[in-house]
Design a protein around this nucleic acid. Sequence first.
DNA 1: ATGGGCACCTGGCTGC
DNA 2: TGCAGCCAGGTGCCCA
Length: 271
Amino acid sequence: MPELPEVETTRRGIAPALLERRVVEVIVRERRLRWPIPASLESVLPGQIVRRIERRAKYILIRFDAGTLILHLGMSGSLRVLKSDVRPELHDHWDIRMDTGMLLRFHDPRRFGSLHWTEFDPRLHPLLVKLAPEPLTQRFDGEYLFRLTRKRAVAIKQFIMNSQAVVGVGNIYASEALFRARIAPRRAARRISRTQAHLLARAIKDVLTEAIKIGGTTLRDYVNAEGTPGYFRQRLFVYERAGELCRVCKSPVKRFVQGQRSTYWCPACQH
DNA sequence: ATGGGCACCTGGCTGC
DNA sequence: TGCAGCCAGGTGCCCA
């Protein structure tokens, strides 16, 4: 999926077309996402006005007076703002039509995305309530990371991808942050030094912030609300660069599998 | 509690 | 051309 920068780019992209606008119709073509789309949506949403659009981890929260839509893009999901007369294509699973003649359209070939509705505080929703701090806040820093990693035997790469440790760091930015912090991805979390914890927290913040600035990373499916890709791919140091030369030391970038996910790293730079 | 593996899906690419 | 096998921005759940 889209990781935090792509979700944030999407959030910012859809907001102008939706804020303070009224929903006129919800059209669901395929209810079978990761969880079935609630049957109540088509009756609950029309007439409601979008009040705020927020992000928590990789979830986008669309707040109305009556409740909140909680949506996730999964691995291949994207949201676009289009004119209401644009014909849906394969894998365009739902639309929310606004009173402006525009619509919000969800496209997701793999259907790992999801859409929930809650009338309660969305931060207390079962999917959100146990999430770790946001990486781009002060609560997440080197001391936090150092403290949390003590006694953890799991590899540091899997640790920073665990949403109960820190949210928003997916497979691309985990490899990239570890490269920037010069930490080997297989190192046990409890074996990173305090200095390394500080470097890693800094690297995570930096890589996510830089990626947001240029609209995220597009590998395959991802497009922003205007349908255009993100350009951070050109700035990747290791991800999907196995066999190519390290941009820092010119030795070959390596790939291996960790927890069923590809990890990319430079064995010469990272220890 | 922690860690590991599986499952959910479709589609693109490679190699025979 | 066809087809098998592998790979892909995620994450909840089950098991040891």
